[in-house]
Write a protein that binds this DNA or RNA. Structure first.
Length: 572
DNA sequence: GCCGTTTTCGGCCCGACTGTTTTCAGTCG
């Protein structure tokens, strides 16, 4: 049983305890424990074997025993027992906006409702109205919530939400009513999916700002509105929350509403330890009157004795401690990127020519690109036969003669076959400037076989980097099971590069693992996997993910300048 | 259930909004 499964079970227990009406602090302890386990970098089985679990903060006697049981037996009696008391459908009910554990519990106990369907029916029959703490509005809202869930998975890839959010921010700025406007929330932190858009504005006329906001063309309808907060739905179905504060409060509110929740909690703890209280309105001394003044977030962090923490890494995974010690990384930026690998052209399934790709890359300020069409076993994508490879090579050489200070590298995205071998003979592989090895078939191998497959591919001396290491498609498909720790270890030992595929559906390697790869000394290549010249632009999403993974320019393969890259890729 | 140079008991982050109440619980972020 791995970390993720254990964390999942602990989280589930936390939720069930809430549904059973247990102490909220008890369920929080389980949530904390789950998160702690999820973020462990040490091997959980090793920790259990050495009986060192209890040393981990957040794991006490009870959780220690339960995790041991899970690791040793793959089961947990307590979990099985408690699960009998909580119908599984109640978890679905919790997803209905407006319904929390208390209300769901009432629905179950008073009306015996255990599924979304039963809830919908009961709403139509007006049975919710007379329940304690319920009423007509609650019932109506629940019904709407069910419709919403039916219509919508409720999560969006962040680039989609980002475009909408930017339009809203611009619209509000143009009104001239707001002093400052910013995107906040998980969108500002660039998490791979978001469920809503958070926007923060400051100004003296909150009512006018909210009026203006609700009139913006993308806003479909306003769901709720108070004196400082407005919730609405966009025409695309995305929920958006607008919050308005006084301009002096803006930096504190921006920090507060950017989160993450875990980061905020840790920051409040820290502030408390220093004799302050922080909330969205300011930093207050123990006496409570009057906030400290801060012009912006920079000053906010400075006042609390911290370096400025970029939003992307505010996940309470050590950023506060690092900021305290002045050890925060200087996160990679778009301008650090010197070249772009993993580009498909018309030779396989791309729609742009090599020349168009080169032109666009030069406009983007790049110094080199690496062409890597699909290899011969990728029939579905028009993979290159050996004679195609030669033809493409000639074109690349011809084009390279045209540019000064810009280079096109000739590469290939070679399929990793089921046994871990690649689909060209060694002498063909050796003739490329670089080779990306990727899995495009047989996703259903078991974890051990898949791990060996990837390890063997990395061991091939001609392989430069491993492409999209887990094959996941966000919101669509789980990655295949694989022991990433071992794959990264192998890459580290052999000096191989691992791709961070910048396609917003992939973002693979996951940013959480990027940080691990960095620790182990593996360089990451931020690759757009472009199938058109516009696709090159996806690289910005890869940079976002890399930043979330604490990567610096020195950790990123394609931040290497052209001259050095030419030396690196020179084949013997 | 976790945690402790304030503590082994009594805390545990904080505030807005809604809807149901008639002073507040529940939900959400």
């Amino acid at each position: 049983m791995d970390r993720k499964e254990i964390a999942q079970i602990l989280t589930e227990i936390g939720t069930m305890l809430e549904l059973l009406g247990e102490s909220p602090f008890k369920s929080r302890a389980y949530y904390n424990g789950a998160r702690t386990i999820e973020l462990l970098t040490e091997d959980i089985e090793e920790l259990v074997r050495q009986d060192r679990l209890k040393e981990v903060r957040g794991i006490g006697k009870a959780l220690d025993e339960k995790i041991k049981e899970l690791v040793n037996t793959g089961r947990l009696e307590y979990y099985d027992r408690i699960r009998e008391k909580v119908p599984p459908g109640l978890f679905d009910l919790l997803k209905v906006p407006g319904l929390g554990p208390k209300k769901v519990r009432t629905l179950y106990e008073k009306l015996g409702i255990t599924t979304l369907g039963e809830l919908e029916y009961s709403c139509i029959e007006n049975r919710l109205i007379d329940l304690p703490g319920f009423g007509e509005k609650t019932q109506k809202k629940a019904l709407e919530g069910i419709q919403y869930l039916k219509r919508n998975r409720g999560r969006y890839l962040y680039p989609e939400a980002l475009d909408k959010a930017r339009a809203l921010v611009d619209g509000l700025r143009e009104s001239g009513l707001a002093s400052r406007v910013s995107i906040a929330g998980s969108l500002r932190r660039r998490t791979e999916t978001v469920k809503d858009i958070d926007i923060l504005a400051s100004g003296d006329l909150p009512e006018a700002i909210m009026d203006e906001f609700s009139r913006l063309p993308w806003v479909d309808r306003v769901l709720e509105r108070g004196s400082s907060k407005l919730g609405a739905v966009l025409d695309s179905g995305i929920r958006v929350d607008l919050r308005v504060v006084d301009d002096g409060q803006f930096p504190f509110a921006l920090h507060h509403f950017t989160g993450s929740k875990e980061h905020n909690t840790a920051m409040r703890h820290r502030a408390k330890g220093m004799g302050f209280k922080i909330n969205e309105y300011g930093i207050f001394g123990e006496s409570g009157e009057g906030s400290v003044q801060c012009a912006d977030e920079q000053e906010f962090f400075k006042y609390l004795g911290l370096q400025y923490i970029p939003p992307e890494i505010r996940e309470n995974t050590g950023e506060i401690e690092a900021a305290e010690q002045g050890r925060l990384p200087r996160l990679v930026e778009y301008d650090d990127i010197k070249g772009i690998f993993h580009i498909h052209t018309r030779y396989s399934d791309g729609i742009s020519s090599i020349e168009e790709m080169a032109k666009r890359a030069i406009e983007m300020g790049m110094f080199y690109i690496g062409i890597s069409d699909h290899s011969r076993s990728a029939y579905y994508a028009g993979g290159l036969k050996e004679e195609d490879v030669l033809r493409q090579r000639e074109e690349i050489e011809r084009l390279n003669g045209l540019y000064e200070g810009f280079r096109i590298f000739a590469g290939i995205e070679s399929d990793i076959l089921t046994d871990g071998s690649l689909d060209y003979p060694d002498e063909v592989l050796a003739s490329f400037d670089f080779v990306i090895a990727s899995v495009h078939s047989a996703f259903t191998l078991d974890r051990e076989t898949m791990t060996k497959r990837l390890v063997r591919a990395l061991e091939n001396p001609h392989v430069t980097m491993l492409g999209h290491p887990t094959g996941r498609l966000i919101l669509a498909r789980e990655g295949y099971p694989v022991d990433l720790e071992r794959v990264i270890e192998t890459a580290a030992g052999l000096g191989k590069v691992i791709e961070l595929n910048a396609n917003p559906y992939r973002l693979d390697l996951d940013w959480r693992w990027c940080r691990r790869a960095k620790e182990m000394g593996v360089r990451i290549s931020i690759n757009p996997d472009a199938h058109s010249s516009e696709g090159l632009g996806d690289i910005v999403y890869g940079v976002d993910a890399a930043r979330k993974g604490w990567l610096e320019a020195g950790d990123v393969f394609n931040c290497i300048p052209l001259a050095e890259m030419e030396r690196l890729l020179k084949r013997a």
